[in-house]
């Protein structure tokens, strides 16, 4: 079954509210702090990007819906810090032990920020299974769109594209497999493809017969058609 974050195609959200091009990058000061605290904690090296995405997704549907964007970030970060044993519940409640943490030496310093952001975290890897599909080939996505390794786990196959017929557009290379990586099961890299789907394959009432949606999908999400 899906989680609340998997909202592509959902009805009922109302109009998009565009913002001016020159609107502030951070509408509130605490938005900026939430982003920075999250990035700085990531630098402690206790989880990867897939784990942190999963932490946001597994907020309860009620919290996910009522929280604003950066509220989700900070709630998920607090949860992750406890889940990974970096902080205790007592710490969060303001009753934790005083003094420096064992991981303090890994804390991101101001002088290392530029290098850390510039370095990024590439997801492509050597090895892994050989590509099974080539551009132009017809494929069908897995259904249901669930994580096959962990029940209720992280996956990047949106429900709206489950069981859909599409065409390989390009091979991106071999990338870390989030369904595994998010759960401490290893990077398990797989070939990653851009796959195009006609909108009419995904929606009962497409806007235009030629419109398409392209998704980046890992090899194990796909079967030959």
């Amino acid at each position: 079954m899906t989680r609340v974050h998997d909202m592509g195609g959902r009805f009922g959200d109302g109009p998009v509210q565009p913002e001016a091009e020159d609107a502030p990058v951070f509408a509130e000061d605490w938005h900026a702090r939430a982003l920075a605290v999250t990035l700085a904690c990531g630098a402690l090296g206790q989880w990867n990007i897939d784990t942190s995405r999963h932490a946001r997704e597994k907020l309860s549907p009620k919290d996910y819906t009522r929280f604003s964007y950066y509220e989700k970030w900070i709630a998920a970060l607090a949860d992750l810090l406890v889940e990974k044993g970096v902080l205790t519940r007592e710490d969060l409640a303001g009753k934790g032990a005083a003094g420096l943490h064992a991981l303090a030496e890994r804390a991101l310093k101001a002088e290392n920020v530029a290098a850390a952001l510039a370095k990024g975290g590439p997801a492509d890897r050597e090895g892994g299974p050989a590509p099974r599909f080539s551009p132009g080939q017809a494929v069908r996505t897995r259904i249901p769109a669930d994580n096959a390794l962990a029940d209720g786990g992280h996956t990047r196959l949106p429900a709206y594209a489950a069981g859909a017929h599409g065409y390989i557009l390009r091979l991106h290379g071999t990338h870390v497999f989030p369904d595994s990586s998010a759960h401490g099961l290893g990077e398990a890299p797989e070939p990653l493809y851009a796959v195009r789907f006609f909108a009419r394959e995904l929606w009962a009432h497409p806007e235009h017969p030629d419109d398409e949606v392209v998704l980046d999908l890992w090899q194990s999400y796909l079967e030959p058609l």
Partner: peptide, 19 residues
């Protein structure tokens, strides 16, 4: 909490935000 434990450096946060 994180600053008290030395897990984050407020100056690094300022640098990230400025970037």
């Amino acid at each position: 909490i994180l600053t008290e434990k030395g897990l984050i450096d407020p100056a690094a946060l300022d640098e990230i935000i400025d970037t």
